[in-house]
Design a protein around this nucleic acid. Sequence first.
DNA 1: CGGATCATTGATCACCATCAAGTCCCGTGG
DNA 2: CCACGGGACTTGATGGTGATCAATGATCCG
Lengths: 250, 250
Amino acid sequence: MLTPTVVSHTVRRGNRTPVAAPRTSTRCSACAMRHLCMPQGLTLDDMPKLEALICSARSVRRGEAVYRVGDPFDNLYVARSGSLMTVMAHRDGREQVTGLRLAGDPLGLDGISTGLHTCSAVALEDSSVCIIPYSALKHMCRETGAMQDRLHRLMSEQLIRESSQMMVLGSLSADERVAAFLLDVSERNGQRGYSHAEFNLRMTREDMGSYLGMTLETVSRTLSKFQKRGLIDAQGKLIRIIDLEGLRHL
Amino acid sequence: MLTPTVVSHTVRRGNRTPVAAPRTSTRCSACAMRHLCMPQGLTLDDMPKLEALICSARSVRRGEAVYRVGDPFDNLYVARSGSLMTVMAHRDGREQVTGLRLAGDPLGLDGISTGLHTCSAVALEDSSVCIIPYSALKHMCRETGAMQDRLHRLMSEQLIRESSQMMVLGSLSADERVAAFLLDVSERNGQRGYSHAEFNLRMTREDMGSYLGMTLETVSRTLSKFQKRGLIDAQGKLIRIIDLEGLRHL
DNA sequence: CGGATCATTGATCACCATCAAGTCCCGTGG
DNA sequence: CCACGGGACTTGATGGTGATCAATGATCCG
């Protein structure tokens, strides 16, 4: 179902991306803190502890991986700017996109159970991620209940997100899948203070197809169909949702 | 894609199951402890704390739900005997099986993020589950690192399990899906000390189809095909795997 | 501009859903 | 005990959705 050309997501972005991209690494306590902790209301007393969590940032160029399948797990990450996707592989080499991560979304939680990453996280555009050493985070969770809550919630949210995607893949038609995907991205964009109606989807049609369990041709055809029906306006990766309700009703 | 008859999993089991089944509730510290904690090696010092985690058991009859979509989340559960499935619903009422839980598997982790359960957990046969109050567990995780590790690992394992299922749904053919499912059940059965080769699959063909994103007819046909090829021997719900390698190679 | 990737659209075909019988199995009641 | 009834399962026939193959057009970036 997936074409062999998907096999290496780092390479296929073309020769533009050098194998070893420069990694700027700067202190960035405020960043992960805001996303990982603040929303749930830490007390002022917690702030010093919070500062103790060593947290740096890292840039990833388009097509580059934050981590790959099989890499040892030491850190969690939080997308800070840009967007990334997670990719998983079968034994036989077939790959599938398993998730889209926007700013504020966590990355790497899957590595906790075995100590190895079971998927790769690839940047869809030049992005940056916050690095959160897992051991430090664990330590902090034992001191600060709010942090513990926040981590549990993050994991649980991720579980729900994946269950929902299982439903998309298991019971929706091609049209419904594409619509559901657009609505999901729209909503998440809105939650981040951007437009519900217009966004730049950095994934290729092939990535979308892989994520939605269909071929790139069907994705393209479906988007064209939606456009003809006046549901969306798609100019390549730039997508504008015209009739939100129409999309919701199929 | 899913027939309307799936809508109510509790009712459809027939009139045999009374609406309100009796719930035996007994102390059962040892049970959840063993599954949730012991494997990761708690020290002897931890045992008293462990005992403090109030944990009781509950019986669920075939077709009955441990919890339902929308129920308030207070407890985690661990399947103790029998087997259960998790079921999720769309807005429009369509339902899909999202997971199969055997003895030792956790239930309810999805409820942490919102405080409400987002799926239902329905018993596939008369079963029992351990009840673990989440607040007590949280408290204990802050005292005992081993417990914290264990909980994180459970959640992470669940994430991996769901990602894998996303791959099954997104990139495998009908034959491959059924084979993957049989191999998964076989392996998990083996891990529990039962036979790799022979097991009683309590799900109906419809449940399997729902879980695998296909119709019950296709499930049935696929199993028949496997039988003709000498890969398995299926007598209704009793399934014996004859050629494990054959299944692995498609 | 030139080369490669990405996207669109068309034509054909295969897989699997759907519809439809008919059988098996089990629990219940006559 | 056997007949009955209903759900579960199997199997067949047919059609539709989406995959596949193919060719062209758009876009991006060096």
